[in-house]
């Protein structure tokens, strides 16, 4: 039975992963964290993550192409790494996002995205 800890362990098993967390994006609070964080500060990283998600969700700009379109992932690439954000859809009221930080050399964006999709679904699937 996968819990939050298990989910983060699995996220760290993604090739190139250096850190992972689950962030409440209304408050920018890291609900659970593991591994490294940019600038070794999980809380600051979570606050930044929340700002990015808020920016993408509060305007309907990015989800307007198809009716009932939903935001799935946000991917930020830097010279040294990839930052992947996957929204976790729960039935009950929550606003959570799974965040994984990948090393650019060892990480594979496509593989990581697929793994995170599965992880986020498994976390809440019955």
């Amino acid at each position: 039975m996968p819990g939050v800890e298990h989910c983060l362990q699995e996220a760290m098993a993604i090739p190139g992963a250096v850190g992972a967390s689950i962030v409440d994006y209304t408050t920018g609070f890291p609900v659970a964290t593991t591994g490294a964080a940019p600038n070794s500060d999980h809380e600051a990283a979570a606050a930044g993550t929340a700002d990015v998600v808020q920016a993408a969700t509060s305007r309907s700009l990015f989800v307007s192409a198809v009716p009932h379109d939903l935001l799935e992932d946000l991917i930020i690439t830097t010279a040294g790494g990839y930052h992947l954000l996957r929204l976790v859809q729960t039935d009950f009221d929550s606003r959570l996002v799974l965040y994984v930080w990948l090393d650019r050399i060892h990480g594979n964006l496509a593989v990581a995205r697929r793994r995170m999709q599965t992880l986020a679904a498994e976390l809440v699937a019955t």
């Binding site: 039975m1 996968p2 819990g3 939050v4 298990h6 989910c7 689950i22 409440d24 408050t27 609070f29 609900v31 659970a32 976790v88 729960t90 039935d91 009950f92 009221d93 929550s94 959570l96 498994e122 976390l123 809440v124 699937a125 019955t126």
Partner: peptide, 18 residues
């Protein structure tokens, strides 16, 4: 009883606590 997954319950409780 299989009504919830561990992940769901943990996330729900964590949210409720904070």
């Amino acid at each position: 009883q299989g009504h919830l997954t561990q992940g769901e319950l943990e996330l729900c409780v964590l949210g409720a606590i904070y």
